[in-house]
Amino acid sequence: MLEQIVFYSLAALITASALMVVTARNTVHSALFLGLCLAGVGGIFALLGADFLFAGQIMVYVGGIAVLIMFVVMLLGRASDLHLRQMNKQWAAALLVCAASLAGFWKIVRMAGGALATAPVKPTTGPLGLIMMGDYALPFELVSLVLTGALLGAIFFSRSEKSQ
Protein backbone atom coordinates (compact mmCIF):
# COMPACT_ATOMS: atom_id res chain seq x y z
CA MET A 1 0.00 0.00 0.00
CA LEU A 2 2.76 2.40 1.02
CA GLU A 3 4.73 1.36 -2.08
CA GLN A 4 1.78 2.24 -4.29
CA ILE A 5 1.34 5.67 -2.71
CA VAL A 6 5.04 6.43 -3.14
CA PHE A 7 5.09 5.11 -6.71
CA TYR A 8 2.07 7.05 -7.91
CA SER A 9 3.16 10.32 -6.31
CA LEU A 10 6.66 9.92 -7.80
CA ALA A 11 5.16 9.06 -11.21
CA ALA A 12 2.94 12.16 -11.10
CA LEU A 13 5.94 14.30 -10.10
CA ILE A 14 8.12 12.87 -12.88
CA THR A 15 5.59 13.18 -15.70
CA ALA A 16 4.42 16.65 -14.65
CA SER A 17 7.93 18.05 -14.34
CA ALA A 18 9.03 16.33 -17.59
CA LEU A 19 6.11 17.98 -19.38
CA MET A 20 7.20 21.32 -17.93
CA VAL A 21 10.79 20.69 -19.12
CA VAL A 22 9.49 20.18 -22.65
CA THR A 23 6.89 22.96 -22.78
CA ALA A 24 8.17 25.77 -20.54
CA ARG A 25 8.91 28.97 -22.44
CA ASN A 26 11.60 30.14 -20.04
CA THR A 27 14.66 27.88 -20.37
CA VAL A 28 15.72 28.55 -16.78
CA HIS A 29 12.39 27.10 -15.61
CA SER A 30 13.01 24.13 -17.91
CA ALA A 31 16.38 23.49 -16.28
CA LEU A 32 14.90 23.74 -12.76
CA PHE A 33 12.12 21.28 -13.64
CA LEU A 34 14.75 18.99 -15.16
CA GLY A 35 16.46 18.84 -11.75
CA LEU A 36 13.12 18.01 -10.09
CA CYS A 37 12.37 15.30 -12.66
CA LEU A 38 15.81 13.70 -12.23
CA ALA A 39 15.39 13.70 -8.44
CA GLY A 40 12.04 11.92 -8.93
CA VAL A 41 13.74 9.28 -11.07
CA GLY A 42 16.22 8.85 -8.21
CA GLY A 43 13.24 8.18 -5.93
CA ILE A 44 12.05 5.50 -8.36
CA PHE A 45 15.51 3.88 -8.13
CA ALA A 46 15.25 3.88 -4.34
CA LEU A 47 11.79 2.29 -4.62
CA LEU A 48 13.26 -0.42 -6.86
CA GLY A 49 15.94 -1.23 -4.30
CA ALA A 50 18.80 0.16 -6.38
CA ASP A 51 20.46 2.10 -3.57
CA PHE A 52 23.75 2.86 -5.34
CA LEU A 53 21.90 4.04 -8.45
CA PHE A 54 19.84 6.35 -6.22
CA ALA A 55 23.01 7.88 -4.76
CA GLY A 56 24.64 8.11 -8.18
CA GLN A 57 21.54 9.69 -9.70
CA ILE A 58 21.43 12.39 -7.02
CA MET A 59 25.17 13.08 -7.19
CA VAL A 60 25.77 12.88 -10.96
CA TYR A 61 22.45 14.00 -12.43
CA VAL A 62 20.90 16.38 -9.90
CA GLY A 63 24.17 17.68 -8.48
CA GLY A 64 26.19 17.65 -11.69
CA ILE A 65 24.32 17.62 -14.98
CA ALA A 66 21.32 19.74 -13.94
CA VAL A 67 23.59 22.37 -12.39
CA LEU A 68 25.86 22.34 -15.47
CA ILE A 69 22.88 22.81 -17.79
CA MET A 70 21.69 25.63 -15.54
CA PHE A 71 25.05 27.40 -15.87
CA VAL A 72 25.04 27.07 -19.66
CA VAL A 73 21.42 28.31 -19.85
CA MET A 74 22.50 31.39 -17.92
CA LEU A 75 25.58 31.91 -20.14
CA LEU A 76 23.70 31.74 -23.44
CA GLY A 77 20.70 33.52 -24.85
CA ARG A 78 19.30 36.95 -24.21
CA ALA A 79 16.33 38.49 -22.45
CA SER A 80 14.26 38.74 -25.65
CA ASP A 81 14.13 34.92 -25.80
CA LEU A 82 11.37 35.03 -23.18
CA HIS A 83 8.98 36.54 -25.73
CA LEU A 84 9.72 34.10 -28.56
CA ARG A 85 7.95 30.82 -29.07
CA GLN A 86 10.17 27.92 -28.01
CA MET A 87 8.41 25.23 -30.03
CA ASN A 88 8.80 24.76 -33.78
CA LYS A 89 5.96 24.38 -36.25
CA GLN A 90 6.20 20.61 -36.52
CA TRP A 91 4.58 19.87 -33.16
CA ALA A 92 1.64 18.08 -34.78
CA ALA A 93 3.96 15.70 -36.63
CA ALA A 94 5.91 15.13 -33.41
CA LEU A 95 2.67 14.30 -31.59
CA LEU A 96 1.87 11.81 -34.37
CA VAL A 97 5.29 10.14 -33.96
CA CYS A 98 4.73 9.95 -30.19
CA ALA A 99 1.24 8.45 -30.64
CA ALA A 100 2.55 5.80 -33.04
CA SER A 101 5.36 4.91 -30.61
CA LEU A 102 2.85 4.83 -27.76
CA ALA A 103 0.95 2.05 -29.54
CA GLY A 104 4.16 -0.01 -29.70
CA PHE A 105 5.07 0.73 -26.10
CA TRP A 106 1.56 -0.19 -25.00
CA LYS A 107 2.07 -3.68 -26.46
CA ILE A 108 5.29 -4.07 -24.48
CA VAL A 109 3.59 -2.90 -21.28
CA ARG A 110 0.78 -5.40 -21.83
CA MET A 111 3.29 -8.17 -22.51
CA ALA A 112 5.61 -7.44 -19.55
CA GLY A 113 2.87 -6.18 -17.29
CA GLY A 114 1.95 -8.97 -14.95
CA ALA A 115 5.33 -9.78 -13.39
CA LEU A 116 5.43 -9.35 -9.63
CA ALA A 117 8.46 -8.97 -7.40
CA THR A 118 9.46 -12.29 -5.89
CA ALA A 119 12.52 -11.52 -3.79
CA PRO A 120 12.79 -8.91 -1.02
CA VAL A 121 14.91 -5.85 -1.67
CA LYS A 122 18.55 -6.19 -0.70
CA PRO A 123 21.31 -3.55 -0.72
CA THR A 124 23.36 -3.78 -3.92
CA THR A 125 26.28 -1.42 -3.33
CA GLY A 126 28.67 -4.17 -2.26
CA PRO A 127 27.90 -6.56 -5.14
CA LEU A 128 28.12 -3.64 -7.59
CA GLY A 129 31.63 -2.84 -6.35
CA LEU A 130 32.63 -6.48 -6.67
CA ILE A 131 31.28 -6.80 -10.22
CA MET A 132 33.01 -3.56 -11.27
CA MET A 133 36.35 -4.97 -10.14
CA GLY A 134 35.57 -8.45 -11.48
CA ASP A 135 33.60 -9.31 -14.61
CA TYR A 136 33.14 -5.71 -15.71
CA ALA A 137 36.67 -4.45 -15.02
CA LEU A 138 37.42 -3.80 -18.70
CA PRO A 139 34.24 -1.74 -19.40
CA PHE A 140 34.90 0.12 -16.14
CA GLU A 141 38.37 1.14 -17.32
CA LEU A 142 37.00 2.03 -20.76
CA VAL A 143 34.42 4.31 -19.15
CA SER A 144 37.20 6.09 -17.27
CA LEU A 145 38.98 6.59 -20.61
CA VAL A 146 35.76 7.98 -22.12
CA LEU A 147 35.40 10.40 -19.20
CA THR A 148 38.99 11.57 -19.64
CA GLY A 149 38.34 12.08 -23.36
CA ALA A 150 35.17 14.02 -22.58
CA LEU A 151 37.10 16.25 -20.15
CA LEU A 152 39.79 17.00 -22.73
CA GLY A 153 37.18 17.53 -25.45
CA ALA A 154 35.23 19.96 -23.28
CA ILE A 155 38.39 21.97 -22.57
CA PHE A 156 39.35 21.93 -26.25
CA PHE A 157 35.97 23.04 -27.57
CA SER A 158 35.17 25.68 -24.97
CA ARG A 159 38.45 27.62 -24.81
CA SER A 160 38.26 31.07 -26.31
CA GLU A 161 39.84 32.11 -29.61
CA LYS A 162 42.28 34.49 -27.94
CA SER A 163 44.09 31.82 -25.95
CA GLN A 164 44.79 29.63 -28.98
Binding site: V22, N88, W91, A94, V97, V109
Partner: peptide
Protein backbone atom coordinates in the same frame (compact mmCIF):
# COMPACT_ATOMS: atom_id res chain seq x y z
CA UNK B 1 3.31 -2.97 -7.74
CA UNK B 2 3.89 -4.93 -10.94
CA UNK B 3 6.44 -4.48 -13.67
CA UNK B 4 3.94 -2.92 -16.07
CA UNK B 5 3.58 0.24 -13.97
CA UNK B 6 7.30 0.94 -14.11
CA UNK B 7 7.50 0.18 -17.85
CA UNK B 8 4.51 2.46 -18.47
CA UNK B 9 6.16 5.27 -16.46
CA UNK B 10 9.38 4.90 -18.41
CA UNK B 11 7.48 4.82 -21.73
CA UNK B 12 5.71 8.05 -20.77
CA UNK B 13 9.01 9.71 -19.82
CA UNK B 14 10.65 8.51 -23.06
CA UNK B 15 7.80 9.80 -25.23
CA UNK B 16 7.89 13.19 -23.50
CA UNK B 17 11.61 13.25 -24.24
CA UNK B 18 11.06 12.37 -27.90
CA UNK B 19 8.43 15.09 -28.19
CA UNK B 20 10.79 17.62 -26.64
CA UNK B 21 13.72 16.65 -28.84
CA UNK B 22 11.54 16.97 -31.93
CA UNK B 23 9.84 20.26 -31.08
CA UNK B 24 12.18 22.46 -29.00
CA UNK B 25 13.84 25.27 -30.92
Amino acid sequence: MNLGSYVALSAALFLIGVFGALTRR
